[in-house]
Design a protein around this nucleic acid. Structure first.
Length: 573
RNA sequence: UGGGCUAUCGCCAAGGGGUAAGGCACAACACUUUGACUGUUGCAUUCGUUGGUUCGAAUCCAACUAGCCCAGCCA
């Protein structure tokens, strides 16, 4: 089967990269203006995740945006862990994030930056701030800090410790670093403006005490910088020109600029790394909340963080989505500042587009019912040569055995067909794909009324699927040879949550769809499929695109995950 | 109620004074050895609302309305 999938590397089979003319997004315009005005002469972007969880489709947007921009403008893309809070971070996450970013195709030259590598520089910056009288050590506790901060509508109050002398602050901060104070007993605050209408500017905390083993720096530090202080420094150190983040950081931009300038990296905001905010990518009726997914995993409702129903990068990958499909999806979703909720259908569209030419099209019967071709010689067996993908010759051909007994899809037969049903029913002639015309002559049912066997006759003249007398047949159905078919597990997915009623119940719990996973233990597949390897992708004709599960497949019993079904305009009248 | 941001088709999203791009979804027809793909066609007299400026406004001005974000020693 590896041969079948080889052609996956035959890129651009159609020779037309149909990217279309996509208009520039607002960030591209900012960058081009900056380049044109000479504010910058090169571009450096970054993706700075905190290693506190797994990446999901929303992160893919940020990764691909930042990487794409760097690539588009011949610049540089830095992959950096924003690991300034060891209480939430784990090595496990840095590993999974690394592999996800790599898989998505954002090339970071195997060079990983860590905010924690800059802790010494950050400490020095804080000391400088103290020396300039722009930072002070406060003994207020968390509750008091909140109280003094004021509210959205009332200004904050002056911190009683804000007038300590530079010398005292210097000594105190050094003692904080030396571990002389308990966690939470003191903080370092930037002295800005307790009355600012922007709460972020009301003497923000820039260092806190937290005795925690850090995955990178171990127990070297017991004080850690806060995001608002650390991030601009990280960007400035790396020479980031455009610091792209999400909308909720808009209010932090003045503080970002303040830190860059007060710490002496630049003289004006114009010269500083420019923080630009864009809207996150949300998918309709999809669960991304960490605590919800954690509970689903704990409750055994999903099979870990890479369950194929999840939109974690690992889940999408396991389901069978390609990085190209995800890239395309992010691309067509666009970049803007308005909160957007994309349709899952758009992701599905991208998956189909990506696989339709690249994947071999084979036959698999998910819900089999046996068919006997009465007039086909009992012991005869013949070999049909079938094109693997009619729209991509480079995928080659395969040989498929045909004999007297076959299986077809149960839903492709009806005893009493409704109008416009042109599959198999008594007296109707249909085409067995790539094989013969067959006509149903009779069928058998068990006591429950379930069809157990269908009798057909075939037209020996119609080998390959065409009749020499030019007679047409309206229906073409897929089949599998009873003698040679392999047994496989097939998993069909639906949305994890109920699409009609929305994601959450009134009590805040998830409104789960009980049918989100359907496991077919005994699907019958063409023998070629039995040799499929992990992550091989196929179109099962008329059933959709499937990908070999890398975890649960075993030799002799592959597991196929349905990535996406085929579109269908067929409705029973 | 202070500050910040956003509002163009069911969903994304261009357009920034000259008379509404594109994609997804949807619908119809054609083609079809996948009810798929492909092709053709149809899908906003209207741009959150109301006024104003102008020969002309989605674009400029004013007022309003709605939604999102901010009061972690999280990021």
């Amino acid at each position: 089967m590896s041969e079948l999938n080889n052609a996956e590397s035959a890129e651009n089979v159609t020779g037309t990269e149909t990217e279309g003319t996509v208009s520039k997004n607002f960030i591209e315009k900012i960058i081009e203006d900056d380049l044109a005005s000479g504010r910058v002469d090169h571009v450096v972007t970054r993706f700075p995740p905190e290693p506190n969880g797994y990446l999901h489709i929303g992160h893919a947007k940020s990764i691909l945006l930042n990487y794409g921009l760097a690539k588009e403008y011949g610049g540089r893309f830095n992959f950096r862990f924003d690991d300034t809070n060891p209480t939430k971070e784990k090595l496990e996450f840095v590993e999974s994030i690394k592999s996800d970013v790599k898989w998505l195709g954002a090339d970071f030259r195997d060079e990983v930056f860590y905010a924690s590598d800059y802790f010494d520089r950050m400490y020095d910056c804080a000391v400088d701030l103290i020396k300039k009288g722009k930072a002070y050590v406060s003994d207020l506790n968390a509750d008091q800090i909140r109280e003094y901060r004021g509210t959205l509508t009332e200004p904050g109050k002056k911190d009683p410790y804000s007038d300590r002398s530079v010398e005292e602050n210097l000594a105190l901060f050094e003692d904080m670093k030396a571990g002389k104070f308990e966690d939470g007993s003191k903080v370092l605050r930037a002295k800005i403006d307790m009355a600012s209408p922007n709460i972020n500017m009301r003497d923000p905390i820039i260092y806190r005490i937290a005795r925690m083993e850090h995955h990178n720096t171990g127990d070297k530090w017991c004080i850690y910088p806060m995001y608002d202080f650390a991030h601009p420094i990280e960007d400035a150190i790396e020479g980031i020109t455009h610091s792209i983040c999400t909308l909720e950081f808009e209010d932090h931009r003045p503080l970002y600029d303040w830190v860059v300038i007060e710490c002496g990296f630049k003289n004006t905001p114009e010269e500083s790394p420019k923080q630009i905010e864009f809207a996150k990518l949300y998918l309709k009726n999809v669960v991304t909340g960490k605590r919800y997914i954690k509970k689903l995993v704990e409750d055994g409702i999903v099979d870990g963080w890479d369950d194929p129903r999840l939109v974690s990068i690992a889940g999408l990958k396991r389901r069978g989505f390609t990085a190209d499909a995800i890239r395309r999806f992010v691309e067509i979703s666009g970049i803007s500042k308005s909160n957007a909720v994309a349709d899952y259908a758009a992701l599905e569209y991208c998956a189909r587009e990506d696989m339709k030419f690249k994947s071999p099209r084979l036959m698999a019967v998910l819900d089999p019912v046996k068919v006997v071709i009465d007039n086909y010689p009992e012991d005869n067996e013949e070999e049909l040569e079938i094109e693997n993908n009619l729209e991509n010759e480079s995928l080659g051909k395969r040989k498929v055995k045909f004999s007297r007994e076959i299986y077809i899809e149960r839903e492709d037969f009806m005893e009493e067909p409704p109008r416009k049903y042109f599959r198999m029913f008594p007296g109707n002639e249909v085409r067995l794909m790539n094989a013969y015309f067959v006509k149903c002559v009779s069928f058998e049912k068990d006591e429950t009324g379930k069809v157990t066997l269908i009798h057909c006759t075939y037209d020996p003249e119609s080998r390959g699927g065409n009749s020499p007398d030019g007679r047409k047949v309206k229906g073409t159905i897929h089949w599998v040879n009873a003698r040679t078919a392999g047994h496989a597990t097939v998993r069909l997915y639906e949305n994890l949550v109920d699409e009609e009623k929305g994601v959450y119940n009134e009590d805040g719990s998830l409104n789960l769809n009980p049918d989100s996973l359907k496991v077919i233990e005994d699907a019958l597949v063409e023998p070629a499929l039995m040799e499929a390897k992990a992550f091989d992708r196929f179109q099962f004709v008329r059933n959709g695109f499937f990908c070999v599960d890398y975890k649960d497949s075993v030799p002799g019993k592959p597991v196929f995950n349905r990535v996406v079904s085929l579109k269908s305009s067929f409705k029973i009248q």
